[in-house]
Lab assay of single mutants.
Amino acid sequence: HNLTITQGKLFFHYNPKLCLSEIHKMEEVSGTKGRQERNDIALKTNGDQASCENELLKFSYIRTSFDKILLRWEPYWPPDFRDLLGFMLFYKEAPYQNVTEFDGQDACGSNSWTVVDIDPPLRSNDPKSQNHPGWLMRGLKPWTQYAIFVKTLVTFSDERRTYGAKSDIIYVQTDATNPSVPLDPISVSNSSSQIILKWKPPSDPNGNITHYLVFWERQAEDSELFELDYCLKGLKLPSRTWSPPFESEDSQKHNQSEYEDSAGECCSCPKTDSQILKELEESSFRKTFEDYLHNVVFVPRKTSSGTGAEDPRPSRKRRSLGDVGNVTVAVPTVAAFPNTSSTSVPTSPEEHRPFEKVVNKESLVISGLRHFTGYRIELQACNQDTPEERCSVAAYVSARTMPEAKADDIVGPVTHEIFENNVVHLMWQEPKEPNGLIVLYEVSYRRYGDEELHLCVSRKHFALERGCRLRGLSPGNYSVRIRATSLAGNGSWTEPTYFYVTDYLDVPSNIA
């Protein structure tokens, strides 16, 4: 807008934040220059609390790290170098490059900038070799853009010569660093050979998330399962459950009422301010606690030095998902009996873990797994792929695949051998790939016309006998059925096997 004052003059007093240069501009645009008398524009009460600059400061050096910015700028000295009290560095987070010096300023003089007072450097006698002032900004957020400017702080001049310097606002972004852990990993099994893994992005990506790394490792069953005799009275049979499938998407929606109208769909109840505040506090606490764990609990591995020492970490090797089922080394339970199943799973520490690289999504279907087997899954978020990966501390989750139908069934015939004193040795093959492992066998036998009897055969007993022995049988026709019990439950009964026990007292003698 054009402003013209045809008559009258300007009068400025007691404006401590208004620089004289701005008042002189007002004289020019209003056409009143030359009308004012000496005392109409006070030299001592206008701009006496402001830094009124008329020179431009330029930054000469900028260096960044993930949490620091090192700045240096060209030296500046007023005509009387004693008038320079120091520099004021202003900075704040700036997602967009549209910041002005006066953003967030209120009537009390406060604003949204963080201000650092910096002492002037030592003055050199040689004007050509003056030290460049600077400042190291610490405690910054990774991968965050900051708006920065600097200006001088000078003393009051009796001659009211307006001098000083100020830089333009520059924008500097800190470097990326390792992201925080992925949030809320959930693993479920939808079949006997697959596990579905879902997660949420890290709360602090500290860069642009480029991919996720998912490692999985087959877990050995508890050692007590191999040692305890679950045929003993009072000892509860062990059981394991597989990871249940995901709930429906509708039930997972946030901010939804727990109660549904019987007449149909209901609208979600909005969260109160107290609920939102509580969630923010919980989120802040979780982030602080995660940072504490990362800094205190997890110790970084030592990389190899120039002395030739090897990095103890196993090298990563990509495998196809079809090879995942046989990740671990199978060892027989008892070496003397080769027909026992290889369900003991000690994992070799030198073995390469299978892994998958996930790009542009937060889910993965891990296939080719062994049925009813526990897996430990390790999830890392990465925001750099080359020249070397920059990934987060791992988040861990466990899951067990679903049982395989008929995996616990005894394959092959049940054979028998009759000894003296009416002892019958029953023999059968253990299931080759049971659900988890076989903890015991149930032997059901009966003599024709009598009630059915049951015998429990422990895992250890089966390994020693290759089956079991029935003792003290009365003469007669017998039928026997056997079924295995694994961590997933009972298998199917075998087809009945028949044998006849004679009275050993009636056996004919070869003595003449």
Rank of each mutant, 00 (worst) to 15 (best):
T343I: 06
R240I: 15
S283N: 08
T272A: 05
V480N: 00
P349L: 11
S492Y: 05
S479Y: 07
S239L: 15
T497H: 06
P332E: 12
S342Q: 13
C267K: 03
R301W: 03
S320T: 11
E224R: 10
C468K: 10
R318S: 15
A394C: 08
S348R: 13
L473H: 01
V345H: 10
K271R: 05
A335W: 06
N295A: 03
V297Q: 01
S341H: 12
V439C: 09
V424G: 03
K361Q: 10
V443P: 03
G467D: 01
K233N: 15
A484G: 14
H461G: 11
F298M: 03
L470V: 15
T502I: 05
G412P: 11
S320K: 14
P354L: 12
W493T: 06
F289W: 06
A395M: 10
Y448V: 12
S257G: 07
V501G: 01
N255S: 06
L280A: 15
W242R: 07
V324S: 08
K278F: 07
K233L: 13
P270M: 06
Y230I: 15
S283M: 13
T333A: 15
R218W: 14
P354Q: 11
I418Y: 13
D250T: 11
N435V: 05
S458N: 08
L455R: 14
A463S: 09
S492I: 10
T502M: 15
V501F: 07
N435G: 02
T241C: 14
T502W: 03
G234N: 04
G449Q: 09
D450V: 14
S257H: 05
E227D: 07
V297F: 03
S509M: 09
G491A: 12
P338W: 09
S248E: 01
L379F: 05
R481Q: 01
A263M: 12
W493L: 09
A484E: 10
P314F: 07
L225T: 07
I438S: 04
K460E: 10
L237S: 05
S486Y: 03
F246V: 12
L440W: 00
R466A: 08
V397S: 06
A463Y: 09
K361M: 10
E258S: 08
G476L: 01
G234S: 11
C231F: 03
E351F: 10
K361W: 10
Y445D: 01
F285P: 03
T303D: 07
V329Q: 03
A330S: 15
V443H: 00
T307V: 09
L473M: 12
Y445G: 00
Y396A: 07
P338G: 12
I366W: 05
A336S: 10
D250M: 11
R400E: 06
E224H: 15
H294M: 03
R400M: 08
S392D: 02
L440Y: 07
V334C: 06
L321K: 13
E310V: 04
G264L: 11
S274C: 15
E217D: 10
L464K: 13
Q252W: 06
D204V: 13
L225N: 04
S363F: 11
R376K: 08
A399N: 03
S268F: 04
K460S: 13
E290R: 04
V439H: 09
P431V: 05
S479T: 14
P270T: 04
N490K: 05
T415M: 12
K357M: 15
S304Q: 10
I482M: 03
Q275V: 06
R447T: 07
D222F: 11
V457I: 11
D409P: 02
D385R: 10
F226A: 07
R316A: 10
I377V: 06
P332W: 08
Q256V: 12
G308T: 12
N435R: 01
V334T: 09
R469N: 14
H254S: 15
V439W: 09
